[in-house]
Structures are given as C-alpha cells and as structure tokens.
Design a binder for these strands. Structure first.
Lengths: 208, 208
DNA sequence: GTCTATACTACGATAGAC
DNA sequence: GTCTATCGTAGTATAGAC
C-alpha cells in the first residue's frame, strides 16, 4: 500500500535527517512513487511528518497492548510480589523492544521529538509513552505505597528511562561491550542485569 | 573570539537540525560573520562539524576532571563503602550536568551521533564518554568484585545510562512531573531518587 | 490517484576585493 | 582575516496531463 510505504520511508528519513534535513523527493523515491503523492495523500511535508508520528505511536501501543490488558486486570488486587513481577515484565519487554532492530527508526524519530518537541511529540506521548508510564505508576503505587506521589513519579521515570540506553546510547553500549552489534549473548547479559537492577530498586534494602 | 562563537553556534545548529539540515549560512549569521569564514577557519562544513565534536568532548572532560582526579587517587585503595560513595558522586554529578540548561545543545549533538555514529562519535567517545565509563568500571570492580567482567560492564552501562533520561527524555520527564521545566524542586526529587536507586543497585539485597 | 514539468527558494563552495 | 558576488545543485510546492 502506497500510504504505508510512504509512512515507513518517512519515519526512516525523518529519523535520520530530521524534519528539515529529510527530503520529500528521497522519501518518495524510497517508496517508489512521485513526490507529489505526498502532497496528495498527506497535504505536504508537515502532514506526512505528523502522520508518521501517529504511525509510530500506534505500533508502539500495539506492542504494549497484551501486557497492558494483563496489568489492568490484576493491578487493583495485586500483592506486592505480583506488582513487582509485573514491573519486571514491563521493563523487560521494553528492553526487548528497544534491543530489536526494527525499533531503530522509531527511536531516532522519537528522540528527535524529545529534544525539540513539536505537535508530533504530543501524539507520540499521548498515544504511546503516557499509557506505559501510567501502568508503571499504577504498579509502583501498589508495590511501594509508602512513597509520596512525587517520589513515585521520579521512580517511574528512572525505571522507564533505564532501558533507554540500549537504544539511544547504542554506539556507546557496543563500544563498551567490545562488540559490533548487540547479539543474543550481549542482550542476555544486559537484560539479566536490568532485571536485577529493577528488583533491587523495588525492594530497596539500601539505607535509602 | 570568532572561532569559538562559530563552534558554539555550530553545536546548537547541528544539534537541532543535524549535519545535513543545518545551514552554514545560518551558523555564520548567528556568529555574526560571513559564511566563508567557516571555509577559512575549518575548511568547510565537515571540518566545522568535527571541530564542534571536539569542542564538546573537551568541555565535558573539563567538567569531569576534578572528580576524575579524586577517584584515580583513591580508587586502588578504596574500601567497599568508599567505592560506593564515589560512584554516587559520579552519577550525581552526571545528573547535575544533565539537568543544567547549558548541556542541552551538547546533548542534542551527542544523541545524533549515538544514533548514527560518524567520525565525530569517535572523538566524543574517546574524549569524554570512555574516560567516565572507565572510572565507573574501576569503582564497580572494587565495590562488586564477585561479578564477572561482562556483568560489570552491563552494570556500568546501566548506571551510566540511568541519568540520561533527565536530558534525553526531557519532554517526557516534564510532562510526567506536570511541570514546564525542571526547577530546583523537581531536580531535587529526581536526584534524590537517583541516588537511592544507585545505592540499591550497588548493595544488591534483591534476590539477584 | 499518480505522473511530469516548472517556478521559486536556499544550500555549500569558491573566487576575488579589501 | 573577513567580506561580497556568483555558480551549480537540490529543496518544496504546484499546475496540469493522463
């Protein structure tokens, strides 16, 4: 489908070169169509950009959906141990998604929007990031009810942020692990360590 | 000084718009000079880009230097508690730097290079990131000698990565904290929570 | 709906005045 | 060292054929 080919190419190009740097000619060429198709289907470069943001949000949401349903069903009645287990499931799933090659282009797009938010950030935030963070907050409220709300939010952000280096600092991760890319071995070590970190943070036996 | 004005403007523009998206005309205008000064001083757009990367690496290194010296002096003989204290000092300093407004432009530049590394990444990595991670590794080796080297590297990366959301996910952090920017109150909560997280991870009383 | 052709603007590099 | 002027290339948008 032409529109979907254009959206995929748009995410790659906007992610790599930014809104200004990307060229509608190149996006059209990668989608094997003429540049003016973009005007026709999306109204222009800006319309394509916003549609690309929504395309990303939709796909991220779809990947989260099974886990979200599972959590919404059980969060209200979960014990401390169950809440911790669900939090581990979220961060591990997040790491899995961020480690998988197909999210590379999405990530580049989202990171640009974080650094300099436009209308597109709003769509990605509300469509993908906010639901995920709300889930994390819900589970933190059950597993660490003694913390005050501001600290729970800080904790949610830091938990959510921890796996981000796997994608956003990819070049550094590879260099430090002495590997050209993150294969099964490297991924396993990173995810295992991430899991232990999350567990430590949630049980908080430090003198915190 | 003209060269330094050009470098500062270059970091801002390359960070915002990427290498292709940034315009040498705009950089020259922001530096109140003619575009051909860039050719004269840096040989062209690419030369300016690499010089900007080195400028960033140098400034990051300078900010780390006092802490680095303190750690190099004491790391070899540090007790477990001292090593943990120095690690807390590193991540807290990192958070402080990432929260400060002046690193906004650097961050945008570095993040672009992480996502799509060029020769400029090499200069930033060797000049700024690698020294910092080596310090973290040194201290982890002293505070958690029982871990095998691969896991120590994974731990160093995740510890190093945890504060990154403060800068890279700034738009999300602000939205979740319900604040337009990160003032003293928000920064204090985040840094305090970060400190507790690092402490938990290093003492590892989870079942990990 | 998708194409080609074209109008207009902005880019980087460079030559040459001072 | 810094400027202005100019060249060739590439960008977006749009009109109109089919």
């Amino acid at each position: 489908m032409l529109q979907s080919r254009l959206l995929d190419a748009a995410i790659v190009h906007f992610g790599l070169y930014g809104f200004e740097g990307a060229s509608t000619r190149a996006i059209a060429k990668a989608s094997e169509t003429a540049m003016s198709s973009i005007t026709y289907h999306f109204g222009g470069k800006e319309g394509l950009y916003l549609a690309a943001a929504e395309h990303i949000a939709r796909q991220v949401r779809e990947r989260l959906e099974p886990l979200r349903q599972r959590i919404e069903e059980s969060a209200a009645t979960a014990t401390h141990a169950e809440a911790v287990e669900l939090l581990l499931a979220i961060t591990d799933r997040q790491a899995e998604v961020l480690l998988s090659p197909e999210t590379e282009a999405w990530s580049r797009f989202i990171v640009r929007e974080q650094q300099q938010p436009t209308e597109a950030f709003e769509r990605i935030f509300q469509g993908a990031l906010e639901p995920m963070i709300e889930l994390i907050l819900l589970l933190i409220a059950r597993s660490r009810p003694e913390l005050d709300p501001a600290e729970r939010r800080a904790m949610a952000l830091l938990l959510f942020g921890q796996p981000l280096i796997l994608r956003i600092g990819r070049a550094t991760v590879c260099r430090v692990l002495g590997s050209d890319d993150l294969g099964a071995r490297e991924s396993a070590v990173l995810r295992s360590r991430l899991r232990k970190n999350v567990l430590c943070i949630l049980s908080e036996n430090g003198d915190g």
